[in-house]
């Protein structure tokens, strides 16, 4: 009973928060509400027995995205006042929202209510996949090709973001002089590395994996940007390029190797699949961490109070 109540509460709060995010006039409040919404949805996904996703959502979908948006506000709040942050009042918007929800809800409610999906098929071949965790099996074996293209998506995004803002690769103008934060970072680093390594390893048989680990490492990188004199990695450095690209190169190599012995792309031999997947994941962890880290250009002191008073 309490569980049902919690579910109903969460399910009701999510769209409500979403509406508030877009309704609020102040941009910084919007972002804060967005982060709150993200944390609630991570909770919803935990309720739906999706711990892998809950982890990634909390770290990437909410944490990193929220930080990126917050950080962007310190740049964009100088936008001319003619672009108001608030939606013009449009009656059609409410009607459209209701109509869309109704139509989509109708389709959702006509779906069968106890469909196992592909659970049986995934389980039937789990032994051949080289890993014990079904989600990892789908991600890196059954549908590993999706993941290969997804790595390309990450590379394109970081290349594009860097191409647009090359000059913002400056070092932090004033890293926090607070000795406590610097010390905290030094103490955190080994723990972060340990957690990331553990997440890759555990991904073979439980919730975890390259994305979760990469996100943790990237989070550490962002903290380093804030607290130390370390600058954002530059594309012009060959070390950075190798760190970024070794993972994708290894993955491509592992993908095409079977082609030369008459098998299909990504068709690992059953005996080697586990090892290949683990090595690829380890290399990808570094690349993913680098990409997510490099999404953050040089820091500027945030002016949260100012952006709180958006011109309306």
């Amino acid at each position: 009973m309490t569980a049902a109540l919690l579910d109903a509460c969460l399910a009701l709060c999510l769209p409500l928060l979403a509406w508030l995010v877009l309704r609020t006039e102040s941009l910084s409040q919007s972002v804060v509400l967005f982060v709150a919404m993200g944390l609630l949805s991570a909770l919803a996904w935990a309720r739906l027995d999706a711990p892998d996703i809950s982890l990634v959502e909390a770290a990437v979908g909410t944490g990193l995205t929220g930080a990126l948006l917050m950080h962007t506000l310190s740049w964009t709040d100088e936008r001319p006042p003619d672009v108001a942050a608030r939606a013009r009042h449009r009656p059609w918007a409410v009607v459209a929202m209701a109509a869309l929800t109704g139509m989509l809800g109708w389709a959702v409610l006509s779906l069968p209510s106890d469909d196992p999906g592909l659970t049986r098929e995934v389980d039937a071949h789990l032994a051949e996949s080289g890993v014990e965790h079904p989600v990892t099996a789908v991600l890196l074996n059954y549908r590993g090709y999706d993941t290969l293209l997804e790595i390309a998506v990450l590379l394109v995004a970081v290349l594009g973001a860097r191409a647009v803002n090359p000059r913002s690769e400056r070092t932090t103008p004033e890293p926090s002089r607070d000795p406590l934060t610097g010390e905290l970072f030094r103490m955190m680093t080994p723990a972060l590395l340990l957690v990331a390594g553990y997440l890759v390893w555990v991904g073979e048989h439980g919730p975890g994996g390259a994305f979760q680990a990469g996100a943790i490492l990237a989070g550490g990188g962002v903290v380093a940007l804030l607290t130390t004199r370390l600058g954002t990695p530059r594309m012009s450095s060959w070390r950075v390029r190798w760190a970024l690209l070794t993972g994708p190169l290894l993955f491509i190599g592992a993908a095409v190797a079977p082609l030369f012995s008459g098998r299909a792309l990504l068709e690992y031999r059953e005996a080697q699949a586990g090892t290949v997947i683990f090595v690829v994941e380890l290399a990808l962890t570094v690349s993913i961490a680098m990409v997510l880290w490099m999404f953050f250009p040089g820091m500027r002191p945030a002016r949260a109070e100012r952006s709180g008073k958006e011109p309306s």
Binding site: N141, G144, Y145, L265, Y268
Partner: peptide, 13 residues
């Protein structure tokens, strides 16, 4: 046709 990863639908691409 090529069943990527050797699985084929519905499991593979």
């Amino acid at each position: 046709r090529q069943a990527i990863g050797g699985w084929g639908p519905p499991l593979g691409i």
